[in-house]
Design a protein around this nucleic acid. Sequence first.
DNA 1: GGATAACCGAGACGGTACGTCCGGTCTTTGG
DNA 2: CCAAAGACCGGACGTACCGTCTCGGTTATCC
Lengths: 199, 199, 199, 199
Amino acid sequence: MKASRASTGNRRNPETHKAIIKAASDLIQETGDLTFEEVARRSGAGKATIYRWWPQKIELFIEVYNSQFKTEEEPPDFGDMKKEIDFLVASTLRTWDESSPSGKAFLYLLTKLHNQYPNVREMRQRFMPKQREYFKKVLQKGLARGQLREGLDLDVVTDVLFGFTWHCLLSNQLDPEAVQLKQTMDIICYGICQPLPAG
Amino acid sequence: MKASRASTGNRRNPETHKAIIKAASDLIQETGDLTFEEVARRSGAGKATIYRWWPQKIELFIEVYNSQFKTEEEPPDFGDMKKEIDFLVASTLRTWDESSPSGKAFLYLLTKLHNQYPNVREMRQRFMPKQREYFKKVLQKGLARGQLREGLDLDVVTDVLFGFTWHCLLSNQLDPEAVQLKQTMDIICYGICQPLPAG
Amino acid sequence: MKASRASTGNRRNPETHKAIIKAASDLIQETGDLTFEEVARRSGAGKATIYRWWPQKIELFIEVYNSQFKTEEEPPDFGDMKKEIDFLVASTLRTWDESSPSGKAFLYLLTKLHNQYPNVREMRQRFMPKQREYFKKVLQKGLARGQLREGLDLDVVTDVLFGFTWHCLLSNQLDPEAVQLKQTMDIICYGICQPLPAG
Amino acid sequence: MKASRASTGNRRNPETHKAIIKAASDLIQETGDLTFEEVARRSGAGKATIYRWWPQKIELFIEVYNSQFKTEEEPPDFGDMKKEIDFLVASTLRTWDESSPSGKAFLYLLTKLHNQYPNVREMRQRFMPKQREYFKKVLQKGLARGQLREGLDLDVVTDVLFGFTWHCLLSNQLDPEAVQLKQTMDIICYGICQPLPAG
DNA sequence: GGATAACCGAGACGGTACGTCCGGTCTTTGG
DNA sequence: CCAAAGACCGGACGTACCGTCTCGGTTATCC
């Protein structure tokens, strides 16, 4: 638990960094909570050190999160945007579901921290940056294939899709096979409205 | 701020009740959060009194929320489902806007206390039954008018639309005139995918 | 070390009070220092409780001090003011000397705390209030006996005498038999100047 | 505040030295205390540099004190010992007054760091040799003039007078015109006791 | 002239204490 | 039976200094 680390002068000590992330990660998984106090205790770091690098809890949380969920997979080329989107969504949900209890713990903390940080959009975009990227790639391919409606801002679409997975997390609906989820994906992908009569 | 209330003997004091709700409401409005400590201070009530009637923070939030959120409006018949949906979404967002404590209280319910009510769907049903009903009515009319794709489960569609407003709240995007929001509504309403080539 | 005390409702808990004074006293004697943190740890009290009643360290210190040094003795009536003053001064010095190491510890803390509290006069007058009283009584008797120069403010004289004992403490000269001290007392009592030629 | 000094290689940098003393002096002046942290910040020196040359706070205080306290004045010959003593005391007090960091630094030396120099008499000799000398000269002249009681050890008297100025500093009574101070000086000079009835 | 030694700035680091805030429990008093 | 008042323990908060450390860079001196 405790550690004794050699000084690295006025250079940031990577071991300390690691120890802090480790302690924070353990804490989240064990208790579903995260206090700077306890992270400092466990990591053997001074509180001030933690505050120096992660002035807000959420920032430590994001780093812990991104350091743990490396399982994003880029979807293979199915030749069909819909299938690729389904793949990505399912993969995201599975990641959150299977990694229980950590997934649940992250969810818990995520919601607890949410209303402390007003700029939620910015925060979200720092979560899982790779996953976002994959979504965007898939959309670009879809656009090239003529499968995407024209005139759409890809960032907005990414937000909608990615935001949808978050909604699933908040709604505790992480089973990609659930009927409701499939229908909702259908709605999003094909639209809830009839296409205007051809012309 | 302070108050001096006569005792009502062994009957619960309605003035105290009101003062507590008022103080809690003000606090949520001001800070987006609420501490029993401060509610007690402002309402002039003892902490124990508050704990007796609202042992959990969330219960106080719920009461504040329900005491304030009375503004659901049924949309007029525009003859156009899209317009009616827009009306409903905009009306919901406006309700949650900064002018009232409702949005902040609801946001709080959605996030910080999420772990106490993990099944958010239950919350949905509990908190805004009328609004759901309006959404459903609009969809039914749209279906009758032939404006809605066939084969969709109306409950799911309601969930998507209503869930979208939640997403706006979480993302702090409550301005119905925002470009991004309009685009997202478009995506949901018309679908992000091209209609299959003319047929 | 730790303690578990029954609640006394909204009445101050005298056991907590005692435990805090005890812990503070022990700390001073053991380490010559005093931190609220450690007092809280040892007494089993919350830090906030200590801050509530002794917002400044010096106030806790004074209470500890006065609760420990109960050995002030009122001088017998020698019929001679000078003898009575000598008695009081010697008694004060002995108290500080014999109660080693606590005397030294108190001295240490006294000096350490000194420059945090600008109103030193007021502070000093709260130390050993009885001893001050004895000094004043002796002077009043001396005045009645015609042994004191007329026209002197007794409070000022008390200050001079009492302040002198403090000076001894600071100078580490606590032996009442020391030649230097006796001379200084002589100087103070009889004046360093010749009396003006009778008239 | 900040500074950028050219390196002087393996020779101690006198500019750094000056900047540190300046910063320390300013700090004492402003707050009555001093932290290495802030001295480093203001002087633009590294903390290690300060620790190298002044490993203990008190050493920095002493240097600041000595670099500033140059104002001792020898009193003119008034033909009256009392007047000369008053002159010296007033001059000492003025020196310590708020206008210069000397008083605060000296007060600091007297109190917070007392435990490191428990023998205050040593400090006396170390810090103000000239002032002591002036006091002694005045007393010798007074003795020659027949203004001083006979049989007194001049060193002790010097101590009493000089010690009195310290007492003023500790008591925050540095105004030479204050009534209380004048009375105390009177008491010391003429004695608090009546001269034996005419003889 | 290249190695060596000391100086200096910068600032990271583990600690300890600070003083504040809130949570949740309790008891007394009094209507 | 209920409300008010507020003391109490616990523990996290975020900040400030302490004293130690190492880096990178500079300059004089010595071989």
